[in-house]
């Protein structure tokens, strides 16, 4: 099944005579790079929770990851290309995860397996749970499910291969690691009184000043619930979130490009504090007709919540 077929590589612009089909391939450099990269994606041998068991089941005989060139699970991050974040990410664990991510050589990919790794999952409300690994490291593919079945994980891995197939070496937004100079490592979070993202130091400082003055802090003043896709965190990251939203309005393809660029930019600019928030920016879901909402009641609710916290 897993035989090499050169036709996979063919670049359609150059016709190959029938008799040479399968013996000769003419291709572009990008395609060759992508093909090699996606065909030998070595995952990090790295399990967090329940999903890890399904990941092992996927690697075992019945689903057999090796059909995708992924059976070589490396325990060392230095030898792996793909981090399958399989399970609940806790605050205590996110520190090693970011370190592992930093230690992985580029090009590197992250797959968030299951609801917990994608967005906190059923344990999201917990005090020690990170609501999505994408708050700390950029994620390429999300696989929903609790836990995703082995077939769902395989689907996610194929989706990742698709994504790699679509990358272009000419486009630095796609492949930021081929750019000039070494890339910045993702700052490792600190276990303080609560987990601290070094990129948010300024924000924390400002909030601490508010708290010192006895003002409400830590809770966001929310706009009334109008489910339009306004970037909610635009105050924090005007550069990263706002353009994407603006572009989105007129052309979806353009928006997609813009988003990719923003993502790559954010990745690059990780040290400046944009990445995590841009990834996290929880755009309210776009949906059809929405009703007017009682603003006064909502504000009152927020005030009450603050009062009870303070």
């Amino acid at each position: 099944m897993a035989q090499l077929d050169l036709r996979e590589l063919n670049n359609t612009e150059f016709p190959i005579p029938d008799e040479m089909q399968g013996n000769v391939a003419i291709t572009s450099l990008s395609k060759l790079y992508n093909w090699t990269r996606r065909s030998s994606m070595w995952p990090l041998l790295f399990g967090l929770a329940c999903c890890a068991i399904e990941m092992i089941a996927t690697a075992a005989s019945r689903y057999d990851l090796s059909r995708f060139g992924m059976e070589v699970m490396r325990a060392s991050p230095r030898q792996s290309d793909l981090m399958i974040v399989s399970g609940t990410v806790t605050k205590k664990m996110v520190v090693p995860i970011v370190r592992l991510y930093n230690q992985m050589p580029e090009p590197k990919y992250v797959l968030a397996m299951g609801a917990c790794a994608s967005g906190g999952g059923p344990f999201k409300e917990g005090y020690n749970v990170v609501s999505g690994i994408d708050m700390y490291v950029p994620v390429d593919v999300y696989v929903p499910g609790c836990p995703p079945t082995p077939q769902a994980l395989l689907y996610g891995l194929i989706a990742l291969q698709k994504k790699i197939d679509g990358q272009s070496l000419a486009n630095m937004d796609d492949v930021p690691w081929y750019g000039v100079g070494p890339s910045e490592p993702t700052p490792v979070p600190i276990l303080g009184p609560d987990i601290i993202d070094p990129r948010q130091m300024d924000l924390i400082r400002r909030q601490a000043e508010l708290a010192a003055k006895g003002l409400p802090y830590g809770v966001r003043e929310l706009p009334p619930l109008k489910p339009v896709s306004t970037p909610v965190l635009s105050k924090v990251t005007p550069k990263a979130a706002a353009p994407a939203a603006a572009a989105e309005a007129d052309d979806p393809a353009k928006a997609e490009r813009q988003r990719k660029r923003d993502e790559a930019l954010a990745r690059k600019r990780a040290g400046e504090g944009a990445a995590a928030v841009a990834e996290a920016a929880p755009a309210a879901p776009a949906s059809g007709e929405k009703k007017k909402f009682d603003k006064a009641a909502m504000l009152e609710q927020i005030r009450q919540r603050k009062a009870s916290k303070g």
Binding site: E125, Y217, V232
Partner: peptide, 10 residues
């Protein structure tokens, strides 16, 4: 829930 939090995080 992230939206309610200034840090966008838990």
């Amino acid at each position: 829930a992230e939206e309610m939090n200034v840090y966008g995080k838990n």
